[in-house]
Amino acid sequence: TCHSKGGEKEDVPLATYEHLAPFLKVNAVAVTGDWVKVEEPISTSKLTQSTHAHLLSFAVLFSLTGLIFACSSYPSSVRCALGPWVVVAVFADVSLWWLARLSDEWGPLFARGVIVTGGLAGLGLALQITLSLFNMYGAKGKVVIALLFLLGGAVGGLVIQSQIKPALDAKALAKQPEVKAPEGKQPDAKEAKTDTGKDEPKGKKDEPKGKGVALHRPIHDFD
């Protein structure tokens, strides 16, 4: 509408590949070792929703696991340290999301911190659960808990082998191919030429050509 004849920008025609070519150049960026923003982060409203969900659900759940652990018979120093550990880690985790988002200068550092706080939360939760369970029962109960853990480990291992690993492999494979695809897109230029002769659309005549054009996978997630 804008760049064809009679349009507001008819002085900048974009009808053929040659017309478009000057705008397709990608400026080379020197490798500096600094952080480079490669994709837009999620919107602030989505981050707010996620923060709300995490603080509401995880804080309640992890407070309860901490409370159960606090009622165990381990030394009070261990209970004082590990009881609130997970909740504190989750609060730190969510705080770092926002710090990473809001601070341009230190953002990447805070983003790396998210991995640490997430790991601490996971580790603390695993300790709280296993130590509480084993502290709760006598010898027989401990054997049952151990068997349940073994069973869970076996099922988890099976799921990893049969479901998760193949899915990850397929995902990795899907990301690799057809990077050259946009280069071979000459049909677009042809179609553009025919359209510019006259402004009238040639709908049905163009359809068979379109069917022959292969669909391309996105080069990366942002595409």
Binding site: L61, L64, T65, C71, S72, I129, L133, M136, I145
Partner: peptide, 30 residues
Amino acid sequence: TLRELPLPVKVVASVFLMAVGLGYTSAMVQ
């Protein structure tokens, strides 16, 4: 302490702990 709790309470607490563990693990895997 946890050991002195009645058995039904222990079972509920155990199921809760295991459910939290499983839920957290599956959320992380996803």
